[in-house]
Amino acid sequence: MGAFFNILVRSVFVDNMIFAFFLGMCSYLAVSKTVKTSFGLGVAVTFVLLVTVPVNYLIDRYLLQPGALRWVSESLAGVDLSFLSLIVFIAVIASIVQMVEMVVERFSPALYNALGVFLPLIAVNCAIMGGSLFMQQRAYGSLTEVTAFALGSGTGWLLAIVGIAAIREKLRYSQVPAALRGVGVTFIITGLMGMAFMAFMGFKI
């Protein structure tokens, strides 16, 4: 359990998707105008990460890695399909997003109305693809660790977008120089938030 919480906390605060890796910046900048919609998108991103990263982990481990096909037969032990991982990951993400959209629409219309507009956007959100690629690169050891990582990065993203949305709502009442309004000032504030988050560096449980 210790490893689980360590990875969870690290991926929320230290390796934050926005502040440390700039993933999912496009929707982060476009949607962070109000807290309510930001929260919706954050929840949707967390949810999709939580589904796609473990699925991609299993695919990577049992189909794509060098020697991953050993469980089929010994003669396939030398096969290395890892060059396919980019295509497979994006295909899995696109189809899971589509499936999640249909399932949510069928079983929970209320949730669908809240998340519906964001779900198609998520298929091309770099945070989702980035989650799978980091999972592959950092070589997590077990399904539990991967789940902790997915949950943590999703939560970190949610935290970042809700934080910036809250600041932007207040910002509407302040005198920002005309040329800096909108995107410019959002970048600078994100930078300052990132500096604050750097204080968590080296944080361990």
């Binding site: 700039f22 600078i188 930078g191 990132g194 750097m198």
Partner: peptide
């Protein structure tokens, strides 16, 4: 990382 964001803003 943070300086990249601030430079971009500038």
């Amino acid at each position: 990382a943070p300086m990249a964001l601030i430079l971009m803003g500038l």
